[in-house]
Amino acid sequence: MQAFTTLDGLVAPLDRSNVDTDAIIPKQFLKSIHRSGFGPNLFDSWRYLDVGEPGQDCSLRPLRSDFVLNLPRYQGAEILLARENFGCGSSREHAVWALYEYGFRCVIAPSYGDIFFTNAGKNGLLTVTLPAPGIDQLFREVEAAEGYRLEVDLRQQSVTTPDGEELKFDIETALKDRLLSGLDDIGITLEDSGLIQDYETRRVKERPWLFADIDS
């Protein structure tokens, strides 16, 4: 996982609430057994006029010209500005892989689906939570000014507008540390192998049925 420290990025506004992970990456693309290749199908049914299928050359497909990510002014966007409950629905981590591969490094929204939020943190995608009034302000500003960029500083927990206004955000220490370091979660946990084994030894005695073999 890539570490996240600071980002000065172009902002794209997605002005819908409850954007679900089915919309972020439709189900027909979940059949891949790899982690890559999802970027071209990000928001597939909003982005293209035709019906997307796996294996297409997406560069040849007709675009919906009015979808925000297809507008010339938002090409190369790295920050997605979104509304309430972004990433609700299915647990598919493919949604995060698709956003990341497309080029997004940060999402800014008032709230997120729980599983999506966790998945983002496992993949170096920063999910900034700001109160609704701050989000409203950013939507107004980004729509008013072409080339609108924001500076995101994870260490300072701040989002800075082109006017120099600084919006502070909260983030859990554990998530912040992990994003800043880019460290592998599993490796960290395995340093506690002894504790896990101790726990199991105790539980096998107290609750043997939890460890019964379920081989058929």
Binding site: N123, D185, I186
Partner: peptide
Amino acid sequence: GIGTSEVEH
């Protein structure tokens, strides 16, 4: 429900 990174974890 968990994501794939957590499944691996």
